[in-house]
Design a protein around this nucleic acid. Structure first.
Length: 732
DNA sequence: AAAGACAATTTTTTT
DNA sequence: AATTGTCTTT
């Protein structure tokens, strides 16, 4: 057997990681240091030289995309090492949720589930919670369903069920009541949300030691990617599986931990070292992606963070071009600059559109850029946004399929009953829900009863009965047909196709196109080889929930990428434009008050900057129109944290206004002064609060509000035209 | 029961 | 600004 492909092209540190002896390892790998590569090669190494079969390897990633990539790389490697190796048979590579789901499908009985349990996505969960909050007769404005979901998921992510929580105050008591009711509903309807997948599978192992032992023996090797993004329960899951006998190989970068706000615990990295004192730490610090200047800039920014595990990226590459910083008048000027710069670069070199990316803090910033790109006719692709399976019309269709597969799915029932409208209104539903609540039954059972026995109007009974009959018939009639035919039958006989086809209220035509696309997706769908689910429909439903799919399909077309910095993690481009570098935008105004959050923003900046291979372009706007009103922000602190000698500044003022493309209107009052001749950044004085700095402004004319950070009195928002503010006289 | 006016809301995202 | 959900009207 030739193991050389496994080591080819690896540097000393990478090689050490790949060939490490069998014991626990923590690999701290900086951006662009080849961590995914190391992970794939490590698995190849384990199989080729340590005598493991691929089926003895379990590797976890965070996204489906990463899982697919990993699987492909390993397959290619193994094929090279040992031609005809049966291509990674039996290997478990997937997301935490995907693997947990597989476990629950295999051991549904032991996990206390019904065989046909359904997965509840975030949207389903919110709807269900809304229903529950209403049923409990609580004030929705005081207990918003979204917040309830947040509260419940937060506890589940920490491994706590309702019974583990001791309420100390009335508010917590109420949240707990919601949690309990939610648990009961999910139980009764056979529904499992994302957090539940993990918690259930963890409990499955805890409560069935023999089963756990089986998996420990089966997977002596457990590998985790993006370890800094694991939450409490994911960590517990890995720890339980590894136990004392297994071998954990975890890869991460504490400087790229950007998901703390959704429960990820960077501390898990340290905790791993506490829990496995013999684990050796290896650092991958050589970066193969970016120029020296880009790395220097990124390193300088991240150096401002507290409590890092310590790591300094270096490269043998040239320092490259300086970091460009563009100061725009406003967001339109900024977008114009970005697009013109792209055109210029493309004219001067052989860059493809796909080598260019614009990254921003929040999705709201993408619109202007999009308009500018359209104006100049450049192809682009916005990543993120609504996924295919999250679209309303698709979810409507899926609700029918879910009911066909599992009648007791209350979430699907609520969605499908009256979509499209078929005369089953609030009153009727109220009655159905009431019966369900008193009998502790699913909505389906309750509806069956109501359609014949309840005290409903004959009309309503009939409508209800027709709906129930429709589902039963769809199930019966299409049982032996292909998945695509089933979907097609659902669209036709449910009336959804006619409903969306009619074009509704100004509704976009692609709604109906999406329905056709769903049929086509179904016809192309192939259940995974080693899937524990025997029904094609059930497998398809799980696929839709776990893998919502990219919104735009045109992946092959050469186009500029637009996305949030979060979405850019793991990707790289020759030229990266980081726009909206303004205090209050990035770092976000919701983060500036807390050190921890600010650190996370800074890590996000680090992630964004290190996406660039050749050229990094940073920009900020003096004025930005956001949510309908004007904002005047100071340049982001992250800009100031980039050493000056790395920067080449481009001032907007050098460009005449007449150079603006005709379709973008010239900026009104762009860099103008605020009323009273003030500008952001000025020193001001207030008779009562003393001296301070004008840091931000919002609104225009007489409504302009400004934020002043007073030297003594703290920060305050004042209406400029009323506040007795004066410009401070400069002291000598 | 369904359409239309009105008000509130707006980080980041995966599964 | 624009989307989203709630309330009102017919």
């Amino acid at each position: 057997m030739d193991v050389s492909p496994l080591l080819e092209g690896l540097n000393a540190a990478q090689r050490e990681a790949v060939c490490a002896p069998l014991s626990h390892r923590l690999i701290l790998a900086g951006a662009g240091a080849g961590k995914t590569r190391v992970l794939a090669h490590r698995i190849g190494w384990l199989c080729a030289t340590e005598g493991f079969r691929p089926s003895q390897v379990l590797a976890v990633t965070f996204t489906n995309k990463a899982a697919r990539e990993m699987q492909q790389r390993i397959r290619a490697l193994l094929a090279e090492v040992e031609p005809g190796y049966g291509a990674a048979q039996g290997m478990w590579v997937g997301t935490f949720h995907g693997l947990a789901h597989r476990l629950l499908r295999l051991h549904w009985r032991d996990a206390g589930l019904v065989e046909s349990f359904q997965i509840l996505d975030a949207d389903d969960q919110n709807r269900l919670l809304k229903r529950i909050v209403q049923d409990l007769e609580l004030d929705e404005s005081r207990f918003p369903p979204r917040q309830a979901a947040w509260w419940i998921n937060g506890h589940k992510d920490e491994g706590r069920r309702a019974k583990h929580i001791q309420p100390t105050d009335p508010i917590t008591r109420t949240w707990l009541r919601i949690y309990e009711a939610y648990e009961a509903t999910c139980e009764r309807s056979g529904l499992v949300d994302f957090a539940e997948l993990l918690l259930r599978s963890l409990e499955l192992w805890r409560q069935h030691p023999a089963l756990l032992e089986h998996y420990r023996l089966r997977f002596p090797n457990v590998l985790v990617d993006e370890f800094q993004d694991t939450n409490t329960i994911q960590y517990a899951w890995v720890r339980l599986l590894v136990g004392d006998s297994g071998c954990a190989f975890v890869v991460g970068d504490d400087d790229q931990a950007i998901y703390g706000w959704r429960g990820a615990r960077v501390e898990n990295v340290r905790r791993f070292l506490d829990d496995y004192p013999h684990a050796a730490t290896l650092r991958l610090e050589q970066n193969y992606r970016s120029t020296g200047n880009i790395l220097d800039a990124a390193n300088s920014v991240i150096a401002h963070n507290h409590s890092r595990l310590g790591k300094n990226l270096w490269t043998s590459a040239d320092s490259g071009a300086p970091i460009l910083v563009y100061s725009a008048y406003n967001e339109m000027d900024e977008a114009r600059f970005v697009v013109e710069d792209m055109e210029r670069r493309r004219a001067e070199s052989s860059l493809r559109f796909a080598d260019l990316a614009v990254l921003y803090r929040s999705n709201a910033l993408s619109r202007v850029l999009e308009e500018s790109l359209i104006g100049r006719g450049l192809p682009y692709r916005i990543h993120g946004g609504l996924k295919f399976f999250e679209r309303a019309e698709i979810k409507d269709s899926m609700a029918y399929l879910r009911l066909i597969a599992h009648r007791h799915d209350d979430a699907a029932f609520e969605r499908a009953v009256n979509t499209p409208p078929r005369g089953i209104g609030q009153r009727t539903l109220e009655a159905v829900r009431h019966v369900a609540a008193t009998r502790q039954s699913s909505l389906w059972e309750s509806a069956t009863w109501c359609a014949h026995d309840g005290g409903l109007a004959a009309r309503s009974k009939q409508a209800l009965d027709r709906f129930l009959g429709l589902i039963d018939q769809l199930d019966g009639d299409t049982r032996d047909t292909s998945l695509a035919q089933r979907v097609d039958a659902v669209l036709d006989r449910s009336g959804l196709r006619a409903h969306y086809g009619a074009g509704g209220r100004g509704a976009l035509e692609d709604r109906s196109d999406n329905l056709d696309e769903l049929v086509s997706v179904a016809s192309r769908y192939m259940p995974p080889d080693e899937d524990p689910i025997d029904s094609e429909l059930a497998a398809f439903l799980a696929f839709a929930a776990l893998e919502a799919g990219e919104a735009q399909a045109s992946e092959d077309q050469d186009s500029v990428s637009l996305m949030t910095m979060h979405a850019a993690k793991g990707l790289e481009f020759d030229v990266v434009y980081l726009v909206g570098l303004e205090e209050g935008v990035f770092p976000s105004h919701r983060s500036v008050d807390e050190d921890d959050r600010l650190d996370e923003e800074r890590r996000l900046a680090y992630v964004g900057m290190t996406r660039a291979r050749q050229q990094l372009v940073l920009s900020h706007a003096e004025t930005r129109r956001l949510h309908g009103s004007d904002h005047y922000h100071m340049p982001s602190r992250f800009l100031r944290e980039v050493p000056e000698h790395l920067i080449q500044a481009v001032r907007a003022a050098q460009r005449p206004l007449s150079a603006y493309p005709a379709r973008v209107s010239p900026p009104p009052n762009a860099h103008d002064e605020l009323p009273k001749g003030m500008k952001v950044g000025d020193r001001v004085v207030h008779p009562k609060f003393g001296e301070g700095t004008l840091t931000e402004a919002e609104g225009s004319g007489a409504h302009t509000r400004v934020q002043i950070v007073f030297d003594q009195a703290g920060s305050k928002w004042l209406v400029l035209s009323y506040a007795p503010l004066e410009r401070a006289t400069r002291r000598s």
